[in-house]
Amino acid sequence: KLATQLLVDLAEGCHTHHFNSLLDIIEKVMARSLSPPPELEERDVAAYSASLEDVKTAVLGLLVILQTKLYTLPASHATRVYEMLVSHIQLHYKHSYTLPIASSIRLQAFDFLLLLRADSLHRLGLPNKDGVVRFSPYCVCDYMEPERGSEKKTSGPLSPPTGPPGPAPAGPAVRLGSVPYSLLFRVLLQCLKQESDWKVLKLVLGRLPESLRYKVLIFTSPCSVDQLCSALCSMLSGPKTLERLRGAPEGFSRTDLHLAVVPVLTALISYHNYLDKTKQREMVYCLEQGLIHRCASQCVVALSICSVEMPDIIIKALPVLVVKLTHISATASMAVPLLEFLSTLARLPHLYRNFAAEQYASVFAISLPYTNPSKFNQYIVCLAHHVIAMWFIRCRLPFRKDFVPFITKGLRSNVLLSFDDTPEKDSFRARSTSLNERPKSLRIARPPKQGLNNSPPVKEFKESSAAEAFRCRSISVSEHVVRSRIQTSLTSASLGSADENSVAQADDSLKN
Rank of each mutant, 00 (worst) to 15 (best):
S49A: 09
S49R: 02
S49M: 09
S49I: 07
A50Y: 07
L52T: 05
L52N: 11
E53R: 03
D54S: 04
D54N: 01
V55T: 05
K56T: 05
K56R: 11
T57C: 10
T57A: 09
A58F: 00
A58K: 00
A58Q: 00
V59Q: 01
L60K: 13
L66A: 03
Q67L: 02
Q67M: 03
T68N: 09
T68D: 06
T72I: 09
H77T: 02
H77A: 04
H77P: 01
H77S: 04
A78I: 03
E83I: 06
M84D: 04
L85Q: 00
V86C: 08
V86L: 11
S87G: 13
H88P: 00
H88E: 01
H88G: 01
H88R: 00
L91E: 10
L91M: 12
S96T: 09
Y97F: 06
T98V: 08
L99A: 05
L99C: 05
P100Y: 02
P100L: 02
S103D: 14
I105T: 01
R106V: 01
L121D: 07
R123T: 02
L124F: 02
G125T: 03
G125Y: 03
P127C: 05
K129Q: 12
G131F: 03
V132E: 11
R134H: 06
P137Y: 04
V140H: 08
D142R: 06
Y143N: 08
M144W: 13
E145H: 08
E147D: 13
G149E: 12
S150M: 12
E151Y: 11
E151D: 14
E151Q: 10
K152D: 13
G156K: 13
G156T: 11
P157M: 12
S159E: 14
S159I: 13
T162E: 13
G163A: 11
G163R: 11
P164K: 12
G166V: 13
A173I: 11
L176P: 13
G177F: 07
S178N: 14
S178Q: 09
V179P: 02
P180C: 05
Y181M: 04
Y181G: 03
S182V: 06
L184K: 01
F185V: 03
F185S: 02
V187H: 01
L188A: 04
L189I: 13
Q190S: 12
C191A: 07
C191W: 00
L192Y: 00
L192V: 08
K193E: 13
Q194L: 08
Q194N: 11
S196D: 12
S196F: 08
D197F: 00
W198T: 01
K202L: 03
L203E: 05
V204H: 00
V204M: 01
L208N: 01
L208T: 01
P209C: 13
P209I: 07
Y214A: 06
Y214M: 06
V216C: 08
L217T: 03
I218M: 09
F219H: 09
P222E: 10
P222T: 05
V225T: 05
V225N: 00
C229D: 00
C229G: 04
S230Q: 09
L232H: 01
C233D: 01
C233F: 07
S237E: 12
G238L: 07
G238W: 08
G238Y: 09
P239K: 09
L242N: 04
L242Q: 06
L245H: 02
R246N: 08
A248F: 11
P249L: 03
E250W: 06
F252E: 02
